[in-house]
Design a binder for these strands. Sequence first.
DNA 1: AGGCGTTCCTGGGGGC
DNA 2: TGCCCCCAGGAACGCC
Length: 274
Amino acid sequence: MPELPEVQTVINSIKKELINSKIIRCELFWKNIIYNCNNNDFIQFIENKVINDIYRKGKYIIYELNQGFMVCHLRMTGTLFITKDKRNKNHIQACFTIKSSPNIYLSFKDIRKFGGFYYFEDIRNLYKKIGTDPFDKIFTESWLLKNIKKQQRMIKHLLLDQKFICGLGNIYVDESLWSSMIHPETLSHNINRKKIKALYKSIIIILEDSIKHNGTTIKDFEFNQFDNMKTGTYKNRLKVYNRDKRKCKRCFNIIIKIRVASRGTHICLSCQKK
DNA sequence: AGGCGTTCCTGGGGGC
DNA sequence: TGCCCCCAGGAACGCC
């Protein structure tokens, strides 16, 4: 599932082609693809607009247009790629023509159809719904200390909450908690300062390292099939995620998989004590 | 306040 | 080989 590093990798691979391009045409192939308005209105909002910039906040990809903002969320299986040929690819749910003669398209592929787009006239309407991005200036050690202590929630649940920190998902929460030796079911206000500091460092280091390696490519999110996409190799550097029944890289005990916050959760019980 | 179940979807895996 | 069932999960929402 695309999380912050995978979203950044997608942006890095399409940005150059899109900046200063006009969305000449928008075709939508799935009725529920637009989250906050109907498909025809969305097309009216974005067609013939120029893309001034493209960046992300958490897992949201933001296209800054000369008027308004087009926003994309990849959810579980979505991906975006630049192509010269919009035909004969399965699961294409949207196609944006960004150059003509010869044609260049931005395609949105999504097998499970959970992903989609928003249009915002004012981007603050998105920002007020989500929390702090780990690369925002305000995300500091003291911010994390203060805000983790404020709540009494299972730490995994809290870290997955996009209204708290936006960008982390199941993979990087499991990795960060293993790295900082915190059991995912620990109530947030009970975690000591030393471990919260370790958690802060883990989150930043793991995300930076994953971005450097173009993210994690697993089953559901194989975007290496397109010319302009790099294969994420962070999969080879994962310490716990998807490594149940294998040995912990720190203590050599067996990693197990449990359920926390209704999510598959990978832990080393010897490293991550309650 | 915080946790949990449901919904949206489809490919793939397990069981028989 | 084939068929059916069930499951994974990000985010929104309702309920307790």
